[in-house]
Nucleic acid binder design. Sequence first.
DNA 1: CTTGAAGCGATTTTT
DNA 2: TCGCTTCAAG
Length: 745
Amino acid sequence: MNWADELTKNLNGPQADAVRHTQGPVLALAGAGSGKTRTIVHRIGYLIHVDGVKPWRIVAVTFTNKAAQEMQQRTIDIVGPVAADCLIRTYHSFGLYLLRQLAQYLEMPASFTIWDEADQQSVIQTILTSKFNLNLNKTQVRYFAQTFSSFKDSLISPDELADEVDLDQYEYGEIMQEAYHLYEQQKKQSIAMDFADLLYQPVRVLQSVPEALEKYRNRYRYFLVDEYQDTNYAQYMLINLLAGAERNLFVVGDDDQAIYGWRGADVTNILNFNQDYPDALVIKLEENYRSTQPILDLANSVIANNSNRMEKRLFTSLTEGSLPKLTVLPDDNSEAIFIAEQIARLSQSIHHDEIAVLYRTNAQSRLFEEALLQRKIPYRVFGGTAFFARKEVKDVLAYLRFIDNPFDEVSFIRAVTTPPRGIGEKSLEKIYAARFDNPEHSFLAIIGRAATLEIPAKAQLALTELHDWITEMRARVKKQVDLGLLLEDILDRSGLLAAFEEEDRLLGTNRLEHITELKNSMLDFQTRRPEGLLSDYLQDISLYTSTADLNPEGAGKAVNLMTIHNAKGLEFEVVFITGMDEDIFPHYLAQRNGDIEEERRLFYVAVTRAKRILQLTRAKRRMMGGQYQQTRPSVFLGEIPPGMLKMEETTAATSPVATYKKTFQAPSRKPVTGEKFKNMITAAANADSSVNPNFKPGDRVKHPNFGTGKVLRIEGSGESAKIHIFFSDNKSRKFLLRYTNLEKL
DNA sequence: CTTGAAGCGATTTTT
DNA sequence: TCGCTTCAAG
């Protein structure tokens, strides 16, 4: 086979130029749907098969996990299995990969812990209270965390801060430098890195250690960067440092799709590429192969409202196509149900994984999940904090992380206080003080000397016990272990298992179900990387946010639920853009910050994800802060010329919501929504026991665990109904009615 | 001192 | 609805 022909024959002129021009800098200005990924993938193939470049000399980076996975898969499909040796990663994953190898230059072991935002914020919170006597709320603490990250995105260390920025323009400017410094110090003492470090630290090492730079410049010779318009300074430096010698740098981007300004992304990185590399070949990809003309018309008419854009004229040969539609629903619930029904209808002709439901904020996903679950339509939720931010998951991970890294302050605190074992604020302060005096000793070592701490005997005992079994576990994980068994041991010995069981039973949570999911991810990991250690697993998952990231193969035939940010770089036959209401999209905070043009680009990104069918929805009322509020239509709707959008409105009376509620209002089985519905499916196995008679105050009842008692009162109704029972042990307890197996006497 | 219960407000997008 | 803060009992 002639690879040169094979890899260019299905490309248009400019695409083929971009693929063939493998030496030296190339900038591809690529409109939405113009075959960016396709070009990158074919270029990788050309490098390997025509130029004879070794795959491991090729680095390709993009932004989101899903986009990276997709690029990797498509490369293997087109180029062959040899492409598995290319480094196709997200920026952060590439940064982590380098950082592990460069950690020695930072006097850090390669197996550091990675702190997410919540971890970061809890450390900053502690610093602000203990060192500055500032008791700030969550929003203010988040502000500190974001500010520190923005410094690192701009490659500014605590020492350089005063010279580089005008601290007066920052709130708390007078303590900013000191706080930033303390945070970095604590982090180092915890043997931890935050997300910004994954880029900042490798860049700093490459800048200051010539031999390190030399080594990686030698190893990696070809760089391909997707979404270049969204790079921040640290990302820009990382790539340009490494590619700077050979200058085989291929970047693609579109200024109309710049949507990460809030994270320090700088569009001028792409606009100035020509100044960085005056000899760069500039290629324009303007033919759209993705969407039909009506979809493109809508996209173009909206983005035209932005000033300061590079003129581009996107065209397509797919002139036929149905008009995009806007459906106005009475409320957010009916919006979700409407979408679920549309999807059910489309299922006849279109695969579920060719359908995407897009929203502006992760919080909006809940109603869609519920509606899809009710109709048994499979779905996957991308991004968000859906899984790894769950309390039970973080609880278990805290133990795993503490076992892996006994210096980690965040994991230690969480593990030692969850579940409660008599260690409170005061005891923790004592532990802190001891650690402050001996920063070279781990938290584990310090609780190993519990007897020397001035804390209650009960607390000493608890600490010693914890120390002993954590030590035992640490000995175990030095070698390769079955992570699933380890997890079970931890659940058991920590007391978490009992706590979760109790909660699931009394409150109807799904904690153990989520733990099982975590366990599955471990089994998955061990299948994928049989040599993998606990620390590898922990670093691996730290870059994932949802279970959808966890098992890419599990994609199957599920509908995709994601934010618009997460959808960038992807395409679907059918796209729903939801929440077309003022303050939702554009988001009111963006509006307030004057980022309306970025919101408009976001809308442009959303629209251009659709290949054939584009459906917009909005709701006239939405549940906000516990009550319904009227909404106004998004400004973006007003920017669409009449005739480009078909409109329809459905009313409450015909809304499926009402019908649904009625069907399920039967007294024997309480109505269920969302998460709870899942329980019902599981509960369906022992269906008979889930049928409760109606109880009223005064009834005598028997509870399987607490024996007989008298009903005091029923609080609330429907799925959230709670029953208060006074038991024969003279104690009253309350339960969620629908999860309690009560027998009427 | 620690913990559970009651009461109150909720501020975005990614890794 | 959820999670955090406040308060009082053990």
